[in-house]
Design a protein around this nucleic acid. Sequence first.
DNA 1: ATGCATGAGTG
DNA 2: ACTCATGCATA
Length: 343
Amino acid sequence: MYPSDKMKMAAPGCFPGRYSPTYRGPDQMRRCMTNPSGDLFSGLNDGLLSRAEALAAVDMQKHQSSHAAHQQMTQQLKHDVMYHHGMGAPPQRPLQAKNMFQMHGMENLDLMSDPSSSMTTLTPMTETPITSSHHQLHGSYHSMNHMMSHHHHGGPLSGHTPGSHHSAMAAAVAAASLHPDQDTDPRELEAFAERFKQRRIKLGVTQADVGKALANLKLPGVGALSQSTICRFESLTLSHNNMIALKPILQAWLEEAEAQAKNKRRDPDAPSVLPHGEKKRKRTSIAAPEKRSLEAYFAVQPRPSGEKIAAIAEKLDLKKNVVRVWFCNQRQKQKRMKFAAQH
DNA sequence: ATGCATGAGTG
DNA sequence: ACTCATGCATA
């Protein structure tokens, strides 16, 4: 069972029954139905591959994702040794839905005790213009608004909040998870994401700012997030579960930020010690032709066996690991809200 | 905004 | 080995 499965089913007080059946994914199902004889893929020889590739390549120009595969192969990939790289910042991944309320200690880069400072020391605003209309939020949002409206200064991004406040916010976050229907509804998520983005921009805060500011909220188990994740939340390019898990947190931040925005204040101080350079990771780039081939393969078999991956890798002259990861990422991509939830 | 990558957790 | 949540690097 995967972590998220636990959350879906057990949801120990966190997100009771908020798992939408529609999202009950293809692969979870797939995993149940084994493919004894094997494989529509073991016979994937060069000829077949080429044909599939050609066909899929053509087909691909019409519509992106194809759901050609329904079965899973016997897994036989060997463990590949991934290359590592020295990173400057400590890895943070505390927001897995399952342990959101279980973790405690958090590292937090406190370079955002003041809004003004943060704005001058961090990434400049590079947001695209807001487009759509306002959406209305109900329920948990209002109740939380009430709970948190009595707040103080420190700037939208500040984390200097008294303990009593924290519990209030924690309660708010918890309360927000009390309305599964509403929080699980893709439409509600979409509406919130849109509203979140608009109000964030109105506050003059970048996606990166929000990510770092989250650590300052000091909610149990909630650390900082990257610009990437905030961006993905706003654009609904996260899994349904991920969206649901992040919503209450971002909602809490938004309320806090807006509350503090009201009691305007000024504060000049602001150190910003940005990290020093370690060896930077180099990003592999798969050329267009190879990418097209991969997509073609994927259309035929989204879950190729280790051997198939090796074969594909060799044919395309790519590292096996690169191919494997590509397929993993492609599968994840299929599950993103935008494509998974049809609305 | 998004592509390729890592690591934790699971089986 | 896989899924899932996330992130660095980059287009």
